[in-house]
């Protein structure tokens, strides 16, 4: 589920902190499993961007796989 976002790094900014979102390590978890992924996040407040492509693509796939484990 690597965050291989096709979006240019500068497209999104955190409105709260006023800084662009940058790639960084984020822990995601479901059904008792956790793992680190590279995603765009705000270095200051930690808000993470999950794009539609990711949510309905790779992430959904991983969710299904974990549900069937």
């Amino acid at each position: 589920m690597a965050g291989k976002d096709t979006i240019a790094n500068n497209t999104f900014e955190c409105l709260k902190c006023g800084i662009p979102m940058e790639p960084g390590k984020v822990t995601v978890s479901y059904m008792g499993s956790s793992f680190p992924v590279d995603l765009l996040k705000c270095k200051k407040c930690g808000l993470v961007l999950i794009t539609e492509d990711l949510a309905l693509g790779k992430m959904l796939e991983v969710e299904k796989a974990l549900e069937d484990k």
């Binding site: 995601v28 978890s29 930690g46 808000l47 993470v48 999950i50 539609e52 309905l56 992430m59």
Partner: peptide, 13 residues
């Protein structure tokens, strides 16, 4: 403009 969802929990969100 759009809405979507996921079940996975994302640290930070």
């Amino acid at each position: 403009h759009n809405a979507y969802s996921h079940r996975m929990e994302v640290e930070g969100n």
